[in-house]
């Protein structure tokens, strides 16, 4: 690692101020960032640790909405249970030690194309709150490792409308245990949303044909006849584009069955 300073603000305001330093970078749980720094692929001057910001910690439920502080760990989300499919998803990110450090804000800010949380946020139509604004999930994810966040902007919280039914199915990339393909299906009164992670070169995306079919008939059989194009799917040593496209459909069907 190149050397850097570490700032440990305790309020969002202080964190934002610290982020104003040149080449400052926010540090959530560090479970992706620190390995990246070890490879010397980034050289921030200052890391602004968000772990100590009290107002970014914890989970509050307000009716059918769940608000999760940006610095809340995967382990905390996993233990919560107010939104069972989301907790189940969190309980399978990384491993227990990673879950004790990694945060939802960090995961969404990084937007790894194989991460789990982006699928939940997009399928749930979540709202990403930052120190300056609120961003709808549909506007937030802008491609692999690319988001609507501006420089210095910090995810302070994520709000999830709790669906009537939901499920996440992850087919793991066997080495990293990230998603080779992960599908989050969420059923709301006004329709079904399906978000896919791990599969596309564009990062997380909504499978709108499946959403339409499932909104009409929330059953795996509704997917019969649909197919997923392999165009623009990721191809690597763990699976071809065609295999990933195939898995999208299989995992969607399983998620629907599990949610039904």
């Amino acid at each position: 690692m190149y050397n850097f300073d570490v700032e440990t603000p305790v309020t969002v305001a202080d964190a934002v101020a610290a982020m104003a330093a040149e080449d400052a970078q926010a540090l959530g749980g560090g479970q992706t960032l620190i390995p990246t720094l070890k490879q010397r692929l980034a050289s921030p001057s200052t890391l602004v640790s968000l772990k100590g910001v009290a107002e970014m910690q914890g989970i509050t439920r307000d009716g059918d909405s769940l608000r999760i502080g940006g610095a809340t760990t995967h382990a905390t989300v996993a233990a919560d249970g107010s939104y069972p499919a989301l907790s189940a998803l969190a309980s399978h990110i990384g491993d227990p030690a990673v879950r004790n450090r990694g945060t939802i804000g960090g995961s969404l800010a990084n937007n790894d194309p194989a991460a789990c949380y982006p699928a939940a946020a997009l399928a749930s139509g979540a709202t990403i709150a930052t120190n300056t604004r609120e961003i709808a999930a549909d506007d937030y994810f802008q491609g692999m490792f690319d988001t609507a966040l501006e420089e210095g902007e910090i995810i302070t919280a994520v709000s999830f409308p709790i669906p009537q039914a939901a499920n996440y199915q992850k087919f793991v990339q066997p080495a990293s245990r990230f998603a080779l393909v992960g599908v989050f299906v969420a059923k709301y009164a006004d329709g079904v949303r399906v978000a896919v992670t791990g599969a596309s070169n564009e990062g997380v995306f909504r499978w709108t044909e499946a959403e339409a079919a499932l909104s009409a008939n929330f059953s795996a059989s509704a997917l019969e006849g649909l197919s997923v194009s392999a165009d623009n799917m990721i191809a690597d040593l763990h699976g071809s584009a065609g295999y990933r496209a195939h898995l999208v459909k299989v995992m969607t069907g399983r998620a629907v069955t599990a949610a039904s």
Partner: peptide, 24 residues
């Protein structure tokens, strides 16, 4: 942050000490 040979407990929970800064 995969192998876990560095796991210690910080404030009572398991963490990978090679993926956490001493300053934290």
């Amino acid at each position: 942050s995969q192998c876990g040979a560095c796991v210690v407990h910080v404030d009572g929970v398991a963490v990978k000490s090679c993926t956490m800064l001493a300053a934290e």
